[in-house]
Amino acid sequence: MDGFSTRHDQATAGAADLIGREPEIQRLRRFVGRIAEGAGEALLLAGDPGVGKTSLLDQAAALAAGSGIRLLRATGSQFEADISYAALHQLLLPCLGEAPRLSPLLAGALNVALGLGEGAPPAQLLVASAVLALLQSAADQQPLLLVVDDLPWLDRASALVLGMVARRLTGLPVGLVAACRTGEPSFFDLGGLPVVYVNPLSEEAATELLTSRYPVMTPRVRRRPENRSPHPRPAGDDPARAAAAAGRGPGEPAGPAGTPRLPRHPGHHRRRDAARDAAPQPPAADRLRLPRPGAAPAGRRTVTSGRPGRYGRPTPRPGDRRRPGRREPAGC
């Protein structure tokens, strides 16, 4: 046990790289220590996307490697989610050399499931038994740690078999640590397995992390909430931020979809008004014939006197009670 402790202390020297994860790292240390003692079990890391589950899996792998434990890793893939036993093939590929030591029944079932032999598709219980026998055979020489990331993306067959295997590791020098998103459905059965919930970093840990990764970042920028959260709030969720990102004022309407908007200069409105006032104006008579926004379409006329009034607008006829600019059908 003294030799294991020495290797274990050396492996944990790099744990300081994970800031604010001391409780999770201590849990992983105890987990790896029990595997080395022959008391295998399964452990699940659950949390929101981007919270740091994969980094903790890497930490568990480093602890196991420093403790003389053999690693078998697999990661769920969206593009392999429809291929039966694809994740199991990725996980067991390094130790398939132990398959000839299994019984013909178990070896044949495992070969067919992994696409290494021909025959009828084996039952999942038979495949799970073959996987357990293979892991036990490989662990006779060296303890094993199975590291599985992105459980929701595992294919259905692999997820069901690994869920059965995870609940049958007691008494074996084999451990399984996996990561999944909180509340996301998966074919991997989590029932009865210990779960460590990975929470977001505290304010102090987030500040320390940003300072260590980006030492040139000013305190003002470091205090922004979007720089502390693993999932910044999209600009579209905040009208003010969306308008600022598009180069508009808070009350300005948005332009057409996909139209890039450049940030406006502070004197934009002043220059625009000055240019409008300096532009030559047509005579009043011509101004009356210019189309205005919302003008009556062809075939309709507006009841006015034709004389320009204030701001060049036509004035109503004397005694006409109808509103100026009211549209009437042609011929009325």
Rank of each mutant, 00 (worst) to 15 (best):
M1T: 10
T6E: 13
H8G: 06
D9A: 14
A11M: 05
G14L: 09
A15I: 06
A16W: 07
A16R: 11
D17I: 10
L18R: 01
G20E: 06
G20M: 04
R21L: 03
R21G: 02
Q26C: 07
R30P: 00
R30K: 09
F31C: 02
F31W: 02
V32P: 01
R34M: 13
I35Q: 04
E37C: 07
A39L: 14
E41G: 14
A42R: 02
L44D: 02
A46E: 15
G47N: 03
V51E: 01
G52T: 02
T54D: 08
L56Q: 05
A64T: 02
G66Y: 00
R70D: 10
L72V: 02
R73E: 11
S77C: 05
Q78N: 09
Q78K: 11
Y85V: 00
Y85D: 03
A86D: 02
L91Q: 03
L102A: 00
P104T: 06
L106Y: 06
L110I: 01
L110G: 04
L116C: 06
L116A: 12
L116M: 11
A120Q: 13
P122W: 01
Q124G: 10
L126C: 07
V127W: 01
L132R: 13
L132K: 07
L135M: 00
A138M: 07
A138E: 09
A139D: 05
Q141S: 14
P143Q: 05
P152R: 03
L154D: 02
R156S: 11
R156A: 13
R156H: 10
S158W: 04
V165L: 05
A166C: 01
R167T: 11
R167F: 00
L169M: 05
L169F: 02
P173S: 06
V174Y: 01
V174R: 07
G175I: 01
L176C: 00
V177L: 02
C180Q: 10
C180V: 09
G183E: 09
F187I: 00
D189E: 08
L190V: 11
G192F: 06
V195S: 08
Y197F: 08
V198I: 13
L201A: 03
E203Q: 14
E204A: 15
V216N: 11
P219F: 04
R220L: 14
R220K: 10
V221C: 09
V221W: 11
V221E: 15
R222G: 05
R224F: 10
P225L: 12
P225T: 08
E226Y: 12
R228P: 04
P232T: 10
A235Q: 08
A235W: 11
D237R: 11
A243G: 05
A245S: 11
A246R: 12
R248S: 05
R248Q: 13
G251N: 12
G255T: 08
L262R: 15
P266K: 01
G267H: 14
R272C: 08
A274C: 07
D277E: 14
A279K: 13
A279W: 11
P280D: 04
P280K: 07
Q281R: 15
P283C: 09
A284G: 07
R287T: 08
R289P: 01
R289D: 09
L290C: 07
P297N: 01
G299N: 00
R300K: 12
R300A: 00
T302R: 15
G306E: 03
G312A: 07
R313M: 13
R313S: 11
P316D: 08
G319F: 09
R323E: 14
G325C: 01
G325L: 05
E328L: 09
